[in-house]
Structure formats: C-alpha cells, structure tokens
Simulated assay, not measured.
Amino acid sequence: MTDTPSAARGHGLRRDIDLLEALASDEAQRAGGLGVVRLAQLVGREKTQISRALKALAAEGIVERDPDTLEYRLGWRLFSLVARTSESRLVRVAEPVMHALSADLEETSHLCVLHDREVLTLLSVSGHSFRVHGWEGRGVPAWRLSAGRVLLADATPDELYVRFGTTGEMPVPELWSLIQEARRRGYARVSEEFEADLVGVSAPVRDFRGRVVAALNISAPKARLGDRLDEAGRTTARAAARVSTLLGWEPRPAPLPRKTPL
C-alpha cells in the first residue's frame, strides 16, 4: 500500500526533524556545523537525499551553510522562532520598558540577543503605540554593533578567540578593549561603524544570576542622534537596568577595599 500525500509529508517532516536534531547535537555545536557526509551517517540516509533536504531548509532560513567550510548549522529563522518562544518572558517584560524608552528618546528601540557570532533582534518598538518589524529575526556580526559589545560582556579573551579569532574581521584584542570600555561606561556606543550615517547605543540586560542575556539598543541617523549619543546611552542603561530588575537581578555593591594596617 502506498503512502497517502499526508503520510508522505509526515515522513518528510520526521526526516527533516532528524536533520535538525543532528545539527543541534553536541558534536555539531563543538564543530560549528556538520557536512553532508557526516549528517548522512548520523541519520542513516543517502547523501543525495540529505543534500536536497538541506538545500530546501536553507532556502527557508531553517539551516544555513558556511560559505568557507560548506558545513551546515541551524539557521537564523529557526533560532528566531525558538527564541520568541523560550525568551517569551524576556520579551513580555522588556516591551513596555522599550515603549517608554522609545517615547523618551523619540527613537526606535531594539531587544537583541547573541547567537553564535551574530546579534539577533527579537523585538523592535517605535516611539509610538505600534511595533516595527524591519530588524526582527535579522542577524548581524556581533563585533560591528554596540549591542554585540554588551552581549559579549561576560566573555573571556579565550572565548572571544574561539568565536572571532579565525574571522580576521576584528582583531580580538581590539574587540576586548571595546567590550571593557562598554563595561566601564555602562553602555556601548558606535558611530558609523556598522553603516554610514548610523549611530547607536546599547546597554546590557541581566537575568537573576547577573548574566547578560540581552541588550537594549537605540539606533538612528547620526544627524538625529549623534549629538546626544551619551545622553541616549545613559537613558538606555537605566531602561536596561529596569528590565534586569524585573527579571530578578539585584545589583550588589562592590566590596569596600580592605584597609592596610599602618
């Protein structure tokens, strides 16, 4: 008896899920991706079948292919869908704060998270009573954005080398210096580093453990925001601290230095 069309679609979906499970495995995460041959071994299917399935999934943004290694990893669209679900509390807590921030600065605010080497925008809110979606789900190299610099605040130099040391696009010592500067200031700022005439500020959002889990960002044309970039940074930092508090973070004062006996 042959499969009905609905049964065939079900089989195809299960095969695609098998591929996604393989790309989410510890092996794939350690390697940064898997090739067609290895994926065929893991799921027990022919290489030609795997290749066709991956091309279809890549066309929809569910997986993505590294242009250098030709290996596949989970794609930005899948991550965006999952993030909107798993980070639903973050989004619910942040959205009203972002509306107030955008109204205060009269600029669009963005809620961003880190995904591998990229910054992914989960939510964008204008200064009016509606949401804007132009950046949602888009990934941008972390080192190019102020949001990336605060999202990497918890990273060690070794972790930065693992993420960016082979790209050659941003020297890791320079990136480390920019991250530390943002930590000292309480927010990061960029001026025309990502795009001509575009400036922005970002501040870290922390969870109850104190770990940076997101960034609040304000980006705008230089002619409109450039002269008040530090003011916008401080305002954004206060908004990010508010979101952090709602997530359960309680900042602790730094310990006083010990007095040296005379």
Rank of each mutant, 00 (worst) to 15 (best):
S6W: 08
A7Q: 15
A8F: 07
A8T: 12
H11R: 14
R15S: 07
D18F: 07
L19V: 14
L19M: 12
L20N: 12
E21K: 13
A31I: 05
L39M: 09
E46Q: 06
A58K: 11
E60M: 07
I62H: 07
R65L: 05
L70Y: 08
G75C: 09
F79A: 13
S80A: 14
L81R: 15
R89I: 03
R89A: 05
V97R: 08
H99F: 15
D104R: 15
S109H: 04
C112Q: 11
C112V: 12
C112Y: 01
V113T: 13
H115W: 11
R117N: 05
L120C: 09
S124H: 06
G127F: 12
G127Y: 13
F130V: 14
F130D: 12
F130Y: 13
G139A: 15
L145A: 13
A147T: 01
V150A: 07
D154T: 10
D158M: 04
E159I: 03
L160P: 01
G165L: 10
M170E: 13
P173R: 01
E174P: 00
L175R: 01
L175C: 01
Q180A: 09
R183H: 09
R184S: 15
A188I: 00
R189T: 04
E192D: 03
E193K: 00
E195R: 08
L198H: 02
F208Q: 11
L216V: 10
L216I: 13
P221Q: 04
K222G: 15
R224L: 12
L225Y: 12
D230Y: 11
D230P: 09
E231S: 07
A232H: 06
G233Q: 09
T235K: 13
T236F: 10
A237F: 10
A239T: 09
A254R: 15
L256N: 04
P257K: 00
P257Y: 02
T260W: 09
L262M: 00
L262H: 02
